[in-house]
């Protein structure tokens, strides 16, 4: 799955009615999110590997430097894990609800009807901003709903937010 190219809002609406019958049109997360997460992993684990290796090797004995393999293994494993996790995230906007599917081992698929939406939240931390990413979260009256899309290009995040708000208003229903 390649990066989710943000589709124009007009296009999406045209597809809506066709979508309802068959498989929804899935969108993945941007590759930048994976890049950011891997960079964070490297930033934390490479100094740890080097530090462990050098300190133990110089102070205790060369054989002890083998302990540096632990963080290294963690780094390699995490690298793969992040890739798989990133690839598993996807979302689809249907005519009346938002679908979010995620998880590799523990799979989860969430459907939130637009009319149930209480608020849409767009957040972006300092690192995420550097990578041009923002996350979109939908809140319903049920705290368990937990519909989060963790990293989107800001333009796409804003488009999604506006579209969700608009659809939420149009289909709004009480509790």
């Amino acid at each position: 799955m390649e990066t989710g190219s943000p589709r124009a809002a007009g296009e999406t609406r045209g597809e809506e009615h066709g979508e309802q019958r068959g498989e929804p049109v899935w969108t993945g997360l941007p590759r930048d999110l994976l890049r950011m997460r891997r960079l964070l992993l490297v930033v934390w684990l490479v100094p740890l590997t080097l530090g462990t290796g050098l300190l133990l090797g110089l102070l205790v004995g060369p054989a002890w430097a083998a302990f540096a393999l632990l963080p290294l293994a963690l780094l390699l494993w995490g690298w793969r894990l992040l890739g798989r996790n990133w690839a598993s995230w996807r979302y689809a906007e249907r005519a009346d609800d938002l679908l979010i599917s995620r998880g590799v081992l523990w799979r989860e698929e969430t459907i939130v009807p637009y009319g149930r939406m209480q608020l849409v939240e767009v957040t972006s931390g300092p690192v995420a901003r550097k990578f041009g990413l923002a996350s979109v979260q939908l809140h319903t009256a049920a705290a368990a709903s937990d519909a989060l899309i963790p990293g989107l290009e800001p333009a796409e995040a804003e488009r999604l937010r506006d579209r969700l708000t608009e659809l939420g208003q149009a289909r709004s229903a009480g509790l």
């Binding site: 081992l105 799979r107 989860e108 698929e109 969430t110 459907i111 009256a141 049920a142 368990a144 709903s145």
Partner: peptide
């Protein structure tokens, strides 16, 4: 309010899944 499907590794091995329905 929302519908969720959850499936852990063991449940997938057995071809099972849980469906959660969240209310207001």
């Amino acid at each position: 309010q929302s519908v969720r499907l959850e499936q852990g590794p063991w449940a997938r091995f057995k071809g099972l899944a849980d469906v959660h329905v969240d209310t207001g």
